[in-house]
Structure formats: structure tokens, C-alpha cells
Amino acid sequence: MPDPAPAIRLRRVDKSFGAGEARIFALKQADFEARAGELIMLVGPSGCGKTTLLSVLAGTLRADAGEVEAFGRRLDGLGQAELTAFRRANLGFVFQSFNLIPTLSVRENVMVPLLIQGASRAEAVRRADAMLAKVGLGGREDGPPTALSGGQQQRVAIARALVHEPRLLICDEPTSALDKDTGQKVMAMIRDLSRSPDRCVVVVTHDHRIFRHADRIAEMEDGRIRRVVDDPSTLDTPAS
């Protein structure tokens, strides 16, 4: 049976920063594919272009050249407003430093993607509370995120990333600010909660301890995907 069509596809993507002699190529003819229903990890040494690749496929950064396609739609030709609308409808983010707004309650933080989409406040409250219950934070909705532990804050971030049921979940170093056990639990939660036949999860990480949660692992080097490993158990050492 042939492989399913990729949900995300990058073809010969270039991205550079600076100009003249100071120009640095972050991506050089990079190809990348991620399938619906899978959790793929992007690994590689610092400066290899992981974050740039993540930004390009999230539509927050424009490639200089090449094709970027997500769910059958070319992103490289879209205008700023269309890209913003695409992110609003299709993307969820889990950030390394959580990026939870400290002056809002836990519930309000989770409501943000829904409110951006135009959901009513009542609907947003209902869905945020349900999502917080799923990540085990029922009863903590009204408190500030700063009152939670690092692991709990990342669970709030996961709830925020999934509450609007995005088709693409992007996780940037989701465990780097957490201890080993908490990191494992958070990664397991990302894997369990985001598992859906229509959803694609891309995780950028340096943390080899969480490789086992991946369906596939793409190794990057010098702005390119060096290899894609289909069996993560064969990669038990740090990639960097």
C-alpha cells in the first residue's frame, strides 16, 4: 500500500538571513514531508535550521525560494492576511517557554485561539474548561498560570494548542524547560491528545529522551534534512 499523501511538504526551500558577505543560509534546498496522523520530530545540532524550517512550515516566515504546501494548499504564494487566516484555522503551537500570558487566568490563556477564531465567550469557556480537564488541570482554571509548576504550565500550553482542534501542531522544544520525568509525561500527553488521523504533529527537539514518542525522526544538518528515520528506536543517542 502506497504511503498516504503528505499533509506538509517543503520542496527545495531556501531561506537566508543578511546580505552580501554576511548572508547566512539557514535552509538550503531543504525538502521535508510530514504525513497526517503522524508525530514527526525534527532533530539536529544548534544552528542547523530546525527553527527556520519550523517557522516556514508554520507560515510565520517566508521562504526565499521553493515550495511550501500544507493540506493541499500552497503557502508560498499567499499574502500576509491569508497566511494569518491559515494559521488561525490550522495551527496550534506549543512553545519552549510556554508563552502563557501571566496576567490572564489559565482558562483565559486556553481561550485565546478560540476567541481569535471568533468563538463566543461562552463557547470558548466551555471548550477551554473541557480541554483543561483533559490535560488534568480541572479546578485550576481561574488561577494564574504563574501559580503552576513548569510541567503544569506546559500542559496549559498543550491545552491552548489543541483547544481549537488544529490540523497541524507545532511544538518547539516542548520539554527543554522541564525535568526528565515531567518531560516524558508532557510528551506522552502531546502524543496521546494530538493523535488524530487528520492531524500532523511536528516537534523540534534536542531531547533524545523523548525520541521514542515519535513516529518518524528527521535529522537536519546545514540547512537540509540529512535523513529521515522511520524507526525511532534505532536513534537512542543524542542527535546533536
Binding site: 510565520t60 494569518t84 491559515f86 494559521r87 495551527l91 503551537f93 517557554s97 485565546v112 485561539p113 481569535i116
Partner: peptide
Amino acid sequence: ENLRYFAAIKAMGAGSGL
């Protein structure tokens, strides 16, 4: 002080107008 949160909200799909 809130710039990174505004950036996060922007990444989530909020337009500059909002």
C-alpha cells in the same frame, strides 16, 4: 514586556488589526 505574548497571539493567527 508583553511583546512576546503579542508575538505568540500573532503566530496563533491574530491579525495586526486585532
